[in-house]
Amino acid sequence: MNKIDDYMTPAEAAFRWGIPQETVKSRLKPSLYKKQIEEMLKKGLIKYFQHPDGKRREWILSVEAMKKWFGEEQK
């Protein structure tokens, strides 16, 4: 496996873990999980890009973050 495979979009993460994409996206809502999100951002386990003119964040998740939230990846 290449190092790049350790990082993914929420859509890929949902597919790889066999869970609904909305489940992954809900973990990225500061109104529900602010403390967890801040901790993972500090550790570099997740990141986002938000264009200065935009409202929507585009997220990148690490395998480590997904394991912490949802356990082992579906094989």
Rank of each mutant, 00 (worst) to 15 (best):
N2R: 10
K3Q: 06
K3Y: 04
K3C: 01
I4F: 07
D5I: 00
Y7E: 10
Y7C: 05
M8D: 02
E12Y: 03
A13L: 06
A13R: 07
A13H: 06
R16L: 11
W17Q: 09
W17T: 05
G18I: 02
I19D: 10
I19W: 08
I19M: 11
P20E: 08
Q21F: 07
E22F: 01
T23L: 05
T23C: 01
V24C: 05
K25G: 02
K25H: 06
K25A: 08
S26F: 03
S26K: 05
R27S: 10
R27T: 07
L28P: 04
K29I: 08
P30S: 11
S31H: 04
L32W: 13
K34F: 08
K34V: 00
I37W: 09
E38D: 13
E39T: 14
M40R: 12
M40Y: 07
L41A: 08
K43T: 01
G44D: 07
G44Y: 11
I46C: 12
I46N: 11
I46G: 12
Y48T: 07
Y48P: 07
G54P: 15
K55V: 15
K55T: 15
R56N: 11
R56F: 06
E58R: 13
I60E: 15
I60C: 15
I60G: 11
L61E: 03
L61T: 00
S62P: 00
S62I: 02
V63R: 15
M66G: 01
F70W: 04
G71S: 03
Q74L: 11
Q74N: 06
K75A: 12
K75H: 09
